[in-house]
Each structure stands twice: as C-alpha cells, then as structure tokens.
Computed example of a mutant assay.
Amino acid sequence: MAKIALITGATAGIGEACARLFAREGYNLILTGRRMQRLERLAQSLNDKYNVQVAVSCFDVRSRQQVTENLQSLPEQWKRVDVLVNNAGLSQGLDPIDQGNLDDWDTMIDTNVKGLLYITKVVSGWMVENGFGHIINIGSIAGKEVYPNGNVYCASKHAVDALNQGMRIDLLKHGIKVTAVHPGAVETEFSEVRFKGDTNRAKKVYEGFDPLVADDIAETIWFVASRPKHVNINDIVVMPTAQASATNIFRG
C-alpha cells in the first residue's frame, strides 16, 4: 500500500517542491492551499508523471472551521497519513514594532501558529489512532534568532520551534516522529508576499549571493522523512553557504 503525505501550502515554493519529490518517491498526496486552480494543475501533473493518487483540498489554514470540515470530510482511506508537512506560512511587512500593521500581525500569527495548530490537531489525532506518523514542521532561521524589524514574524516562528519540541514530547508515547526544518534565505514567493507584490524589493533580498531554492528544502524534508523507523531528526537548520546567521550574509 502506498504511503500518504499531506502537504499544506502546496501551491508554490517549498510546498510544491515537496509535492513533486514525494510523488516521485511513490507517495499518494493530500495537497492543501488557497488557490484551487494551482492545486488542480499540480495534482494533474503529478498524476500524469508519477501515476500517484492526489487529493486536493482548497481552504485557508487560518480558519479552524475550514480546516476541520475539509480534512474530516476526506474519505477514510485518506486519513492514514504517514507524513504531515506543515509548510503553510508567510511573513507580512518588515516594520519596527511601533510602526507595525495590526492586520499583518494577525495574518502572521493566524497562519504560522494557529493554522499549524489547527492542521496538527486533526492529523495528529489520525496518527495516534493509526499508530504511526511523522510530523514535519517548517520553521525558519527566524525561529532561532531575532533580527531588526522581524519582531512578530520571528515571534511566530519561535512559536513553531516551541510547538515542535512540545509535539515531540507529547506524541513520543505514540511512536510518532516530529521534526522541524528551519531554512535560512530561500528564494521563493516569500519576499514577494512579505513586501505585498513589490517584486523589485523582493529581488534585492537575494542579490549578490546564491540563496537556497525550494528544491533544497524539499530534499532536506525528504531526507528526514526517509530515515529508518528508529531514527528521528528532531531539528535541523539549513542555510545557504553565503549565510551564517539571519543578518550575516556575504554578498560577493
């Protein structure tokens, strides 16, 4: 029987790269995101190329009701999830705390923290019932250190780091693996979303060095997901060679 991976935020970037890699490895997939057309296009592509089954579910992880209703309405055979990749997340703005936009703060906290919790609550329940599973939480270097004007985004990713550790302890007795993958600078839609479509400003983030790309993180996620049953990677930080910390990047 093929294994199943559930990947949130699968319409672009790291989530889409994970979907392609797990499909290549023979996993059936549950893909979630907010852009149905992209989900359907990706599902068709993966089915055609790898002959895997793909279920798509379009909803916003910020809505507890949408998360619960969409996931619980999946047919029973799809609830035997082997790997959950909690990838959905974003940053909004880059402002000092006194000038921060309250709506941006709500969006980051609701997506990065509460959305991750809503998904995990449902899927971890399935895993406990099934007696197996691996939860992989996508954090950030921002969850390990704080940088200027990153305040609330950094706080949300520090929460992911703490939740990852808490999940590892709480689910230990059920034999469920829990891992956090914390990327440094990855060139995806991340900066475009942070700067609300300002592509020129987004491009400047990655000028003068070779950043990570989505496939680099997907390969790391696959590495931790494919370890033997007795091996769990608790926590891993992945950086471009040119980056030593959140703010220390060598631009040649």
Rank of each mutant, 00 (worst) to 15 (best):
V85F: 05
Q77K: 14
Q77S: 12
E76C: 02
L90E: 10
W78M: 00
L94Y: 12
P75W: 06
D98S: 13
S73Q: 14
K79T: 12
V85G: 03
Q66N: 05
G89H: 08
L84V: 06
N86L: 05
P75E: 10
T68R: 12
V83R: 00
L84N: 03
D95I: 07
S91D: 10
D98C: 07
E76T: 05
D95F: 11
L90M: 15
E76L: 06
N70S: 14
L74E: 00
D82L: 01
Q92E: 13
I97Q: 08
Q66E: 15
N70W: 00
R80N: 15
G89V: 08
E69S: 14
D95T: 14
T68S: 12
P75T: 06
N70I: 01
Q77Y: 13
T68F: 10
P75Q: 10
P96Y: 09
Q77H: 15
P96S: 11
D98A: 11
V67R: 02
A88K: 04
Q77G: 05
N86Y: 04
G93M: 12
L90P: 03
I97D: 11
Q72Y: 08
Q72A: 06
K79S: 08
K79P: 06
Q77E: 14
S91K: 08
E76R: 06
Q77N: 13
D82H: 12
G89R: 05
D95V: 11
Q77I: 11
I97G: 11
L84K: 01
L71I: 02
L90Y: 09
P75G: 04
Q66M: 12
Q92W: 12
G89P: 06
G93T: 12
G93I: 12
K79H: 11
D82N: 13
L74W: 02
Q66K: 11
N86I: 04
L71P: 00
G89W: 06
G89Q: 09
D82T: 05
D95L: 15
N87A: 04
N87R: 04
A88D: 03
E69R: 14
D95R: 14
A88Q: 04
Q99Y: 11
V83Q: 01
E69Y: 11
V85K: 02
T68Q: 12
L94V: 04
V83I: 15
E76G: 00
G100I: 15
K79G: 09
Q66G: 04
